[in-house]
Computed example of a mutant assay.
Amino acid sequence: MTPEELNAARDRVLPDVVAGGLRVLFCGINPGLLSAATGHHFARPGNRFWPVLHLSGFTPRRLAPAEQEELLSYRLGITNVVARATARADELSAEEIREGGRILTAKVELLRPQWLAVVGVTAYRTAFGERKARIGPQDRTIGATRVWALPNPSGLNAHWTAESMSHEYARLRAAAESPDLPQLGKGGWWMGCG
């Protein structure tokens, strides 16, 4: 892609990959320019979302961004806190991220996935006003949907390797696959391991 083509994707909205009955709805911060230009979530070559999804056992093979619709067959989906594309997430204002949290809440209430997995704890903290949130399962629920904060798979997040990220994503996968998790209102809230 040329710089002009990428720049033309600025502020473009990338459609969600969603359906009812999802086990996990993964939620990025917002689409990057390459994602908006190609129409594929997590499209930047240095982004580790697709490899980590496979390494953690969510998918039987590593999917390419262009195969994102295949996620629905595994009852997985993708959305974003903020829908509009930017070159960098730090171009978003805190108010825009908070408004994105309100929109995301309404979306989750409509779709009712088992888990909402926000990939980026800093974005989660801002979107939901949870300043002390850490990676892992959260106390917050949205209706019956439980919430998990995951490491951001961006290549800029050098603190996490693909291997260490895959372990955290695998914890979420195990929680989403567990047949004997208590339901809200029938035994309380399950906090997971760690």
Rank of each mutant, 00 (worst) to 15 (best):
E4W: 03
A9P: 02
R10D: 00
L14M: 03
P15I: 01
D16M: 00
V17H: 01
A19Y: 05
A19D: 14
R23S: 15
G28Y: 02
L33T: 02
L34H: 11
H40T: 02
G46C: 05
F49T: 05
P51G: 02
P51Q: 04
V52Q: 08
G57Y: 08
F58W: 14
R61E: 14
R62W: 04
L71V: 03
L72P: 02
Y74I: 01
Y74A: 12
Y74D: 05
L76F: 06
I78N: 01
I78M: 04
T79W: 01
A83L: 02
A87F: 00
R88L: 13
S93R: 11
R98Y: 00
R102D: 00
T105N: 03
V108K: 02
V108N: 05
E109D: 11
L110C: 06
L110V: 08
L111C: 07
G120I: 06
T122W: 09
A127C: 09
I135C: 07
G136E: 06
L150K: 07
G155V: 10
N157A: 13
A158G: 11
A158V: 15
T161D: 12
E163S: 15
S164M: 12
S166P: 08
H167Q: 13
R171D: 13
A175S: 11
A176Y: 08
P179D: 12
D180Y: 11
G188R: 14
W189R: 15
G194D: 09
